[in-house]
Design a protein around this nucleic acid. Structure first.
Lengths: 215, 215
DNA sequence: TAGATTGTTAATCGATTAACAATC
DNA sequence: TAGATTGTTAATCGATTAACAATC
């Protein structure tokens, strides 16, 4: 019972990038673009762009191309950015704070409604006008306020226990910055991982691969 | 002139995850593991694990499996974690500060040697014992201290100009948190992107796709 | 109408899975 | 030796690219 059936992960991963490039074109007052022109800008093939878009519908017009604004709107809609899912942030350390302050949640379909930590020094302070609340009050909070998503910015040792509590509260969508594989333990959840350590190691690989003498 | 030739991106992306799971097995004093057992733990096929590892060499032993510790060491070596690439961080805002404080650079093959910003209020403060330096001094610093990598934690509007300066200084490896596509403008560079906005939108897509009624 | 460019089918390419001989 | 499990080749599956008829 999915909105779009059989969309492959590579296609989904490219959508935000299309959205970004189209946003930049709008800022430059470009009103129309062909798959060919867009492919040149993005370093893709025109064929791939047309294939990707046609997973969701025919947004172009033969002989003309695509209307930048309406394609932008369509992709925003496909991504679900016209929602406002309520999210709680778990962990108000450096990373959690950066995520809370740095992200434009509202433009990405989310609303940050609570921040939790177990550090007594942090509890009571506010981040972006949202008070940092004692993690002990998580159950009370999520019972009172409908919560769609949890954002994990806690060390991996703390993650399983908190995940279990959230799961029992019915919160089953996670944006996971923790170095812990949530999807291994639950099957009916939605997880999007941001593994900064993995990313840094991939950079290390790329540099080493390009520079080290074969051995 | 690469150390490993023809290794596909999907394989490389799985390496850090193998490394992490093996590290956890070591912590649990597990000394040997078969591709079958590891595949169960990680949610992959045993075949894929063997294929992946055999891109780099035969690390197992027929009838026995793999030594956890030596496979861990091998993957660490493949990733290049035994290097210590010097890195400068550009941008000491919330995100830059979180990256500086949060990451164990030394365990991932890097050493953070400088932090730069153009905000007078930040210049002179220290993060992790590293002073925040005026961005104007970037050229002087990189000339004096060999610099392998730049970490971009600046807004996308600031990115192109700083990238140009770093490129001219010979710094061509980037860990890019900025919402800007560096690889479009230079070809002889190495970029690893962390696009948090893209990640958040993908989460939004997954939730919306699973929950919205088809229309 | 003629030119341009899409939507879509077919061909190719690459990645994953299956199978099994080699061998510890 | 017998059992287990690898390394590797072959088969399948999926994603990307190419081609072109449809059509604006």
């Amino acid at each position: 019972m999915h909105k779009y059936e059989n969309i492959s992960a590579p296609v989904i991963k490219r959508l935000p990038r299309y959205y970004r490039f189209l946003g930049e074109l709008i800022a430059k007052d470009v009103t129309r673009i062909s798959s060919r022109e867009l492919s040149d800008k993005m370093g893709l093939t025109a064929s791939q762009i047309r294939q990707d878009l046609n997973c969701f519908g025919g947004f172009g017009q033969q002989g003309y191309g695509y209307s930048v604004q309406s394609l932008y709107n369509e992709i925003g809609h496909i991504l679900g950015l016209d929602h406002l899912y309520s999210a709680v942030l778990i962990g108000a350390g450096n990373l959690g704070k950066a995520v809370a302050v740095h992200m434009s949640f509202e433009k990405r379909g989310f609303k940050l409604i609570g921040i939790f930590d177990n550090d007594k020094n942090k509890i009571g302070t506010t981040i972006r006008d949202i008070p940092v609340t004692d993690l002990d009050e998580l159950e009370a909070f999520c019972t009172e306020h409908h919560t769609d998503v949890a954002i994990f910015c806690v060390p991996k040792t703390a993650t399983p226990e908190i995940a279990e509590r959230l799961y029992r509260l019915g919160v089953k969508n996670y944006w996971n910055f923790s170095h812990y594989d949530l999807s291994i333990h639950y099957s009916d959840i939605i997880v999007e991982n941001v593994h900064l350590n993995d990313s840094l190691m991939i950079l290390c690989y790329k540099i080493s691969d390009a520079n080290d003498a074969p051995n």
